[in-house]
Nucleic acid binder design. Sequence first.
DNA 1: ATGTAACATTGATATAAATCAACTATATTT
DNA 2: AAATATAGTTGATTTATATCAATGTTACAT
Lengths: 229, 229
Amino acid sequence: MRINGKMPCEACRNKCDLHDAFRRSGRIVPESSIIRAGFRKHEMICRQGDSVSHAIYLTGGTAKLYIEGINGHNIILYLMRPPAYIGLLSFFESIHYTYSVTAIEDSQVCMVKLDLLKELYLENHEVLLRLNKAFGKSVALIMKKIICLNQKNIRGRIAESLLSLASFYGTDSFRLPVTRKELGEMSAISEENTVRLLTELKNEGIISVHGRDVTIIDNVFLSKISELG
Amino acid sequence: MRINGKMPCEACRNKCDLHDAFRRSGRIVPESSIIRAGFRKHEMICRQGDSVSHAIYLTGGTAKLYIEGINGHNIILYLMRPPAYIGLLSFFESIHYTYSVTAIEDSQVCMVKLDLLKELYLENHEVLLRLNKAFGKSVALIMKKIICLNQKNIRGRIAESLLSLASFYGTDSFRLPVTRKELGEMSAISEENTVRLLTELKNEGIISVHGRDVTIIDNVFLSKISELG
DNA sequence: ATGTAACATTGATATAAATCAACTATATTT
DNA sequence: AAATATAGTTGATTTATATCAATGTTACAT
């Protein structure tokens, strides 16, 4: 992780809710109160169990938000691209992160001490409302995930993951940002079965797969698989 | 469901955040803006998929919050006793409930139109902060649930459910508020395996079971089962 | 260019947990 | 009190999915 000057965060300008909040507040707070930091691919942005000291806002790159379970068995809840709050779900009640976030490509964040943010939102509703909205969105995603992981078979689960990636990129043709193992972790499937399922869907002509390049050929059918299990 | 007078909600006084919020606000709002309602055992308080029109606060009784999945296969996320927000997780972003809540014993709620609550928290931080805190608590619970359901075997899952019931009641000796099927739904286990596991734990002297009366005899060991799967 | 580590693939096997089926016990209604 | 519905129990069977093992492939570092 590189702080401030070393990896300048141009992307942040106009992309960062935290900076915006301070600008709008009219409060006299030195810009230096908001730390800009860069993370290389595979670097951890926050770690499950660590205490939450800063609000973190993703302004560049891509990251995965996941739960670290037993025996190094992770569950990826969702991927994140800017603009997105990272240290969000643990804001208000949890003292410790209930999940980890790791960069899956070089990423930039802005972060501000929680104390300062709290001072800010005590005099400014809008910040809190924005936090809340983002919060609600995350919860909706997580509920969907719980249903998926517990109610669908692995075929339905991988279909849902592929569809969610397509909507993440806004196109049915994309390059997987994750390994097979991680694609499995998005769907709570073993790496081996993930590979098998991709091959299966390919052989059925529903998707095309060349290495990490995936194209959803039959979106309607894939959606049906996702819905019906 | 019975509205207002028919099933008076004495329990509400001093237990209802919604009433408190309005009292504190100093706003001139007729008390009748907050509806009091009673629900009989098994009656639904809100239904997954329905649009969220009111904030609902549980002031009496007990309810289960659950996701309705495929083939009538539910997952109970947690049980609720007053004081607790019901229509919480879907407040800010979701237009529709992402879960259902049903009374598991006769219950009372207070509810207020979302519009009115929004007006209120736009001029009063405290309300929003309280909502947020409750929000955060729910999320922490849900994260724990996801880990449990996906990382533990059924023995570890039922152990966790029993322990959570004990902490819910604040005692290691309690009467199950739910059927075997529902206890299974709390742990994503089939009814049959739930029964088998209870018998197993009983035979091992870890718990005692007589009908719905459960006592956790060896809390330490049960906790170990819960942790290690 | 070569070696090493990370990633991907395929087949065989093991196993946890669901489902099916039949039956008993306990409530609730008439 | 009888009848019906709901809840609880047990055993046998099936099935979905993980795990194990072996091997191929690609990317990365020296």
